[in-house]
């Protein structure tokens, strides 16, 4: 029986070693959220002063080239998906912000006003896994301190599995250069150097229903913005916030909740508020496939307005 246990121990050890090797090796992971790694690299590399955008996919099409030209900041669009959670996202960038940076935050309405979606965001395992990939050492320490050893192992295993699948794909498709890339495999084809989407959202009519049910907001769920603002102030970083765009028809249906959201922000938010929700209410023709995605026409208008708002805010400094 001893021999058997010896073999079993050897098997376990060989797999742990393999996992360690895979973890340390470069490699892409075939999942959209792996782009967080590429975006983090971009954040580390861009020169100061920088403007860092945090938000969901609604902000991915922003015309940051225009903003860069007009404002003179290096642009970093860290946005990816609303379901990632803004508080977690801000936590991730904390150690990388530098004095003089400007952080611009927006949140899709559902992430604040739909309690079901809010719960989903903050219990979403995928988001947790890819934030772990973004800063493995920090997250591993946190989980270990909380006694969640198995979770650390499981997350690392899941991420290694993704890497292995990418390796196989690159080997079969004879893609040797991709073997040593990191993050999202298609990153260069889908994002520009500022982290914006290269291709606009496709047009889909009627706009896809996201089945959100809005209710009145709760400041407890937004308090993290002030916490970050406090941190940012100490670091000589500015925090700007703007209300996301929405189709006018949807806005009118949800007006009381959206206005309550604006009022609560106006009263309690200590950073700079750039706009009122009504400012970014657009006709349906400005939208792509959902109420959160602008098409090229809509984005041109939104980016120009946002540029004006940021300029004004920065000049008030």
């Amino acid at each position: 029986m001893r021999k058997l246990f010896g073999y079993i121990a050897l098997c376990i050890l060989s797999m742990i070693l393999t996992m360690a090797v895979l973890w340390l090796m470069p490699g892409t992971i075939p999942h959209d959220l792996a782009a967080l790694v590429n975006k983090k690299e971009m954040l580390k590399q861009k020169k100061s002063p920088r403007m860092i955008f945090i938000g969901g996919s609604s902000q991915l099409t922003l015309k940051t080239d225009l903003l860069e030209k007009e404002l003179g900041y290096s642009m970093i669009d860290m946005s990816l998906w609303g379901g990632l959670g803004t508080s977690e996202h801000l936590e991730e960038i904390k150690e990388h912000v530098r004095p003089g940076d400007v952080v611009v935050v927006t949140m899709e309405y559902a992430t604040v006003l739909d309690p079901k979606y809010y719960t989903y965001i903050h219990t979403n395992e995928e988001a947790k896994r890819y934030f772990f990939l973004m800063s493995p050492a920090r997250h591993a320490c946190q989980y270990i301190n909380n006694g969640e050893y198995y979770y650390v192992f499981k997350t690392m295993l899941d991420l290694c599995q993704g890497k292995v699948k990418s390796f196989i794909r690159n080997l079969v498709l004879l893609n040797p250069t991709e073997l040593f890339a990191t993050g999202f495999p298609n990153y260069k084809n889908e994002f520009n150097t500022n982290g914006n989407r290269l291709h606009p959202y496709s047009i889909h009519r009627p706009l896809m229903n996201l089945n959100n049910t809005f209710t009145y907001p709760d400041w407890k769920k937004l308090g993290f913005l002030n916490d970050f603002n406090e941190f940012a102030t100490k670091k000589n970083v500015r925090l700007l916030f703007y209300f996301s765009h929405f189709p006018t028809s949807e806005y009118l249906l949800q007006e009381k909740y959206i206005n309550a959201y604006y009022n609560i922000m106006k009263q309690s938010f200590k950073g700079t508020l750039l706009n009122k929700p009504r400012d970014f209410m657009y006709p349906e023709e400005y939208f792509g496939d959902t109420a959160y995605h602008l098409n090229d026409k809509g984005e041109t208008v939104r980016s120009a307005m946002l540029l004006k708002m940021i300029k004004e805010a920065l000049s008030r400094q």
Partner: peptide
Amino acid sequence: NKTTFLGFAKPAFLPEMI
């Protein structure tokens, strides 16, 4: 207009099928 293709998230489709 679907984030998945044959049940897999689009970026994962090819590696999974291979």
